[in-house]
Amino acid sequence: MTKPNLLFTGCLIEVNYPYLEKLANDLLPKIGLGISDRIEFMCCPEPISFRGATDYSWLVLAARNLCLAEQKGANIISLCNGCENTLAQANIMLQNDPELLEKVNRDLAEIGFNYKGTVKTRHFLQAIYEEVGLEKLKSFVTRPLSFLKGASHAGCHLLNPADILKFDDPLDPVVLDELMDALGIEVIDYEGKTLCCGVSLATADDREGSINALKTKLLATQKYDADCLIVGCPFCFKQYDVGQRLNRKRLDEVEPTPVYYYLQLLGLAMGLPFEETSISTHKIKSQAHMALFKGEEA
């Protein structure tokens, strides 16, 4: 019997981009990835600063989330690279180290929880790639998005550490490209695919570094004539979309480049009406794309 899946949206999506939660709820079951009723997880927690400052608490809080899924007899599908990064790493640590698991369980007992280690966590791109597969995915596409020239950005925390995330080759990632190709998108291969989005630099008070990362990426995609960036992480999305708006003055050599979260394009390719993608709420909009997204509905 296959286990049900619970959606792990992460703080950023549930708070700021709930339309992505809605898209996941609506679309994933249509392609064969059933999603159970929402349960409330708390922060994954954040794998960079929170973990850096307080590694063991990070592990215990992650274990609490894994427990919630285990109590429902479910697996997790996550919508954010950061969440998947935390959950996958914490899960492997606990599954491979009985002593550590015991120690964590002693702390979890304080809230009446216990983790056995039975949960499987996957990022949604991984679940689509592995469980649905490219061929079946193509069979759901009724409106190929062949007018898009997309540059993929899988993002550091989905790729690394590769032996744990098991998503793709971190030095030469192709999985997201193949998933884009399945929707009919023209995939732009470009130098700079693995450049970090830089969103986390802001937490270290390095706004300049964060803007440089944004700019370097956009110049790279522009050089190869991509007309949009395609991501599977809300933090990368926020950095590229909101970041371009906030730093417009600093990005004068850069063509404004729209950014799409993969599920929005999956929806459009499956015939979902444009309004339901919330693409019109993005900070960086391409009128040409929006006309095509709508036009093909008729």
Binding site: I48, S49, G52, C156, P161, L201
Partner: peptide, 14 residues
């Protein structure tokens, strides 16, 4: 201050 700029991308480890 540079310490906290490490974004835990793990590329150095790879």
């Amino acid at each position: 201050v540079n310490l906290w700029k490490c974004v835990s991308c793990h590329y150095c480890q790879d």
